[in-house]
């Protein structure tokens, strides 16, 4: 059972709101003081899913691919520490400023370059941009079947049974390999790496890949190839102060609360 997991390094999603800052002019999130970037939590779950598939099959490999700046190496290293075999880092200035499309394009080429495995796994979305589309685009580019937002994955090379989280329940899907899967938080917690593995991972070489290595022109990737254009990035102004719903009777207060929730589009 061979797997490739695509992972991304992102600012820690557990950064407290008070420490979260955006540089609106540069349209980027400012790193919070003292808070290190982390592997996107859904991606760590995807690595976990791949490792469990490999363990269940008793053989195979789990390789990691990540596109991003220097810090992406840490996401790869974390995955290696969890038990993945090898890491590949799509690392080049040309990749910068891309969108879901260029990321998926580069990843799909890299996967072809490495050889399409039995299963390609993603987190359901990168917890920074929250687009949740790269996995599906890769599936489309590689013309593979896909199943998204999964809470369970079982089976081996040939065919997998997966459970997909949908609005009103769960769907069981039979999917042939090779295929693309995206893993959701319902899958459960990823393992905490053992120190020995962290140290081994630290020593392991991570291969770097440039656009040329995977058969792409610099103009096809990064900002140059992007299909989405960002116009603004800002922090929503939230009312810091609590709004106490007043009313003469409990009924009035309850009705007031429901109305307020509706207005705020929370319900």
């Amino acid at each position: 059972m061979d797997a490739i997991v695509c992972v991304k390094q992102i600012p820690d999603p557990e950064t407290p709101a008070a420490a979260f800052r955006v540089d609106e002019a540069a349209m980027r999130v400012l790193p919070a003081q003292g808070i290190s970037p982390v592997i996107s939590p859904f991606d760590a779950q995807a690595v976990e899913a791949a490792l469990r598939l490999k363990d269940a099959a008793g053989e195979g490999s789990v390789n990691i691919v990540s596109l991003g700046p220097d810090s992406a190496r840490d996401a790869i290293k974390h995955s290696l520490a969890m038990g993945a075999d090898d890491g590949y880092h799509l690392h080049d200035d040309a990749f910068e400023g891309g969108d879901a499309w260029t990321t998926a394009l580069a990843l799909s080429k890299a996967i072809q370059h490495l050889g399409v495995p039995d299963v390609i796994l993603f987190g359901r979305q990168a917890a920074d941009w929250d687009q949740g589309s790269v996995g599906s685009i890769v599936a489309e580019l590689l013309d593979l079947p896909s199943a998204t937002v999964l809470r369970a994955v079982e089976g081996g090379a040939g065919s997998l049974t997966v459970s997909r989280v949908v609005g009103d329940g769960f769907e069981t899907i039979e999917i042939p390999t090779p295929c693309v899967l995206t893993i959701s938080n319902e899958f459960g917690d990823p393992r905490y790496p053992q120190l020995r593995q962290i140290m081994q991972a630290a020593r392991k070489q991570v291969a770097e890949l440039t656009p040329a290595d995977i058969g792409l022109e610099p103009s096809q990737v990064g900002a140059a190839g992007a299909r989405l254009e960002m116009h603004a990035l800002f922090q929503p102004t939230s009312d810091v102060d609590v709004e106490i719903i007043e009313g003469d009777t409990p009924e009035e207060k309850a009705a007031g609360l429901v109305a307020a929730l509706r207005n705020a589009k929370i319900l």
Binding site: D12, A19, Q33, G34, I35, S36
Partner: peptide, 15 residues
């Protein structure tokens, strides 16, 4: 601790 340099997961505060 590894990521945020403190043990208080979920704190809304900064230093």
């Amino acid at each position: 601790l590894e990521r945020q340099g403190h043990p208080w997961r979920g704190t809304p505060y900064t230093r």
